[in-house]
Nucleic acid binder design. Structure first.
Lengths: 326, 326
DNA sequence: CCGCTAATACTCAAATTGAGTATATTAGGA
DNA sequence: TCCTAATATACTCAATTTGAGTATTAGCGG
C-alpha cells in the first residue's frame, strides 16, 4: 500500500500519478433584505462561481483563496470554511491535457453587499439558481414542475423500484405527507441531477426538461457546489453562531430573524425565535433603538462574543412554523 | 477574476499555477469489542494512514480511493465519505520539486476486522493515537498531563489573554465546570497542536512536552486527519444511521450500544438508549435470540432499512450519562 | 387621540429527556 | 431444587424543552 510515510523509498514512483491543476472556488455569501446573495461571474451561456488557481505562493489553501479574492475584489472575507473537493474526471469540459482539474470549494461569508469595483462579478440571489429552496412565501412555484417531473420519473420504473423512487422524491422535497427539511439541499440537487431535471445534467442532444422551471444556467458543477454550500450553511447556523458573520455590528432581532429565514428558506415563529436567541445568550443590548421599524421601536443588539467562551456549540436550533400568524 | 466558465479565453494561462500531486488518504474504521479500530501502516518513526495516489484511470475521487483500497487490501469499503483536503505547503516534509502535494482525506467504514493479507497495514485502536478522547471508563488518565500542560500554557500569558487561553482549554477539554463534548475532537487536537503538546507540532530541536503522555507518533498531519474523521463520525451517528455500517447483519441492542459508546467515547444510559433506538425505528426483530449474554438472552435485531425511506435524518441523538447505574 | 404596525411579555399544553425502579430470563452453583 | 449473579426488558415520573398562542406596549401618521 503506497503511503507517504517517512521511509518512503519508493514514494516518488508511487506518487507521480497524473498532471493536476487545482482551482479554488468560492461560494461567497452575503445577506440582503431579499435573502442571501451569492457572488457570481455572470456570463453566457452560464453563470459561474468565482475561482482562482492554487499558486505556489499560497502557504495554505485558505490563504490562497483569501489572496486571490482580495486581489480581485474589494471584499473582506470574514468566515471561511472548506466545503468539498470536486474531482470527477468528467466534471470539466476543458480537460487538461492528460491530466485533470480539481476544484476545492470554499464557503465564505461577508458582512455586506459591496460593489466589487475591480471585478466583473456581481451579486445574485441564491434562489435564482435553486428556486425550489425558498419556502418563505409558502410552497415555491418551482415545485409544481418538479413534482410532476419526479412523479413521471418514478412512474417510469415498475412496481417496487417505482415506489422507491417515489419515496425518495417525497422525502427530499417534502411531497405528500412528508415534511420539508431545509438541510437536504444537496440531496434535492442530486436527485434533480440524477433525473436529468437540471440542464447541466443533460449532455448535448439530450431533450430539454418536459416541464421547464426558471432555470438560470450555471457552468460546470457550480450549481452543485452552490447547493453544497447552502446545505452546509443551513446546517451550521443551528450549532455555530456563523449567522453573525452576515450581520452588521448592530441589528434588531427582526433583522436577525429575517437573515436566518432567508438562509434557511423558511419562516420562523417570531416569539420562539426571540426566546431562543435570548436563552442562548447570543446577543446583548447596545442600549440604542431602531425607530424606523414601522411600529414600536426595536432594541438594537449585537452579537455577544462571550458565548464562544461559554458553551461549545452555540447556535440557533431553529424550528419553523407551518403558518406564521405574526 | 479568473474562472473556468465556458468562454474561458484566458483560462489556460490563468489556471496553470503549479505542479501538483494528489494523494487519497483513508481513515478506515471498524468496530471491535475494545472500541473503534483504524487501519494504519505501522512504521518507524511513525505510523501513517494508508494512502494512494490519484491516477488518471480514476473517474472520480471516491472511485480512486475504492480502487486502490481493494487493490491493496481485501477489505470491502461500505460507507465512504470525503473528509477534508489538506494542502498546506509545509505539511509535507518531502516537497515535490517546485510543486506541492494535496491530500484528499476520506472516511471509510468497514463491517469487520479482517486480516489484510495483501498489505502490511494493521488495525489499531483509535484511542492509541487520541488517548484523551476515551471517557468510557471515566476521565481518561491522559487528561491529567494535558490539563497541567494547558494550565501552564495559559499562565504564560498575562491577565486577559491568559484567561482566554484558560477558557479555550476548559471548553475544549471539559475542564472545571465545563462538560465534555464528544464532538470537539478536532478543536482539541488543534489546541494540542497549537500549544506544542503533540509531538508532530514540534520542529526538530524543539523541547519535548514537559508532561509526556502515551504519544504514539503519527506521520505528517495524519493525527489531524484522524481527529477530523473521529469528530465527523461522532457527529454523524447522531443524525444518520451510519453506525450500522460497522455492525454485523444481526446484533443485540447491547452490541449496538457498545459500538456507539466506543465511537463516541462515552457511556450511555442503557434504558434510554433502547428507547431511542426503538422509537426511531432503527431496528427490527430477527426472531432469533443471543444466549451467550451472561444473563437473560437478548433479542437479535437488524438494521431496519426502511427508515431511510421514512424520515430524512434518522440517527442516534444520544445523550450520555454522568454515572451509569447499569 | 385613533388606528396601524411592529416589539415585547407572558401562558400553556404537548412532547422530549434524564434518571430511575421493577420485573423477566438465563446460567451456575449450594 | 432453590438461591444468586448477570443481563434483558418494561414501565414510571419529574424536569425541560418546544410549538403555538394570547396579551400588552410603544412609536407613527394622520
Amino acid at each position: 500500500m503506497p503511503s507517504s510515510q517517512p521511509d518512503r523509498s519508493n514514494a516518488k514512483s508511487d506518487v507521480e500519478g497524473l498532471a493536476l491543476l487545482a482551482e479554488l472556488s468560492a461560494v461567497i455569501i452575503a445577506a440582503s433584505v431579499d435573502g442571501p446573495q451569492v457572488l457570481v461571474r455572470a456570463g453566457a451561456p452560464a453563470d459561474t462561481l468565482p475561482a482562482g488557481p492554487l499558486q505556489s505562493g499560497h502557504r495554505t489553501l485558505e490563504a490562497g483563496l483569501r489572496a486571490w479574492v482580495s486581489q480581485q475584489t474589494d471584499l473582506h472575507l470574514g468566515y471561511v470554511e472548506q466545503l468539498y473537493t470536486f474531482g470527477d474526471a468528467d466534471r470539466i469540459d476543458m480537460p487538461v491535457r492528460s491530466g485533470r482539474a480539481l476544484s476545492i470549494a470554499y464557503l465564505a461569508l461577508v458582512r455586506a453587499l459591496r460593489a466589487s469595483a475591480r471585478s466583473t462579478a456581481r451579486w445574485q440571489n441564491i434562489y435564482t439558481y435553486l428556486p425550489w429552496e425558498d419556502w418563505r412565501e409558502g410552497r415555491p412555484a418551482a415545485l409544481d414542475g418538479i413534482e410532476a417531473y419526479l412523479k413521471a420519473w418514478a412512474a417510469e420504473s415498475p412496481a417496487q423500484a417505482g415506489i422507491l423512487r417515489d419515496r425518495r422524491a417525497a422525502l427530499a422535497f417534502g411531497l405528500g405527507s412528508d415534511s420539508w427539511s431545509d438541510e437536504l439541499v444537496l440531496d434535492r440537487y442530486e436527485l434533480l441531477y440524477e433525473t436529468g431535471f437540471v440542464r447541466e445534467a443533460r449532455r448535448d442532444g439530450e431533450p430539454p426538461p418536459p416541464c421547464p422551471v426558471v432555470d438560470h444556467p450555471m457552468g460546470l458543477d457550480h450549481r452543485r457546489i452552490l447547493a453544497t454550500a447552502l446545505g452546509r450553511l443551513r446546517a451550521k447556523i443551528k450549532y455555530r453562531p456563523v449567522i453573525f458573520e452576515l450581520m452588521p455590528e448592530n441589528f434588531t432581532l427582526l433583522d436577525l430573524q429575517r437573515t436566518v429565514e432567508g438562509l434557511s428558506g423558511v419562516k420562523l415563529h417570531k416569539q420562539n425565535f426571540r426566546r431562543l436567541v435570548e436563552t442562548q445568550g447570543l446577543v446583548e443590548e447596545t442600549g440604542e433603538v431602531q425607530t424606523e421599524t414601522g411600529g414600536r421601536p426595536a432594541r438594537l443588539v449585537r452579537f455577544r462574543r462571550e458565548v464562544l467562551l461559554e458553551r461549545p456549540s452555540p447556535g440557533l436550533r431553529l424550528s419553523s412554523t407551518k403558518r406564521p400568524s405574526n
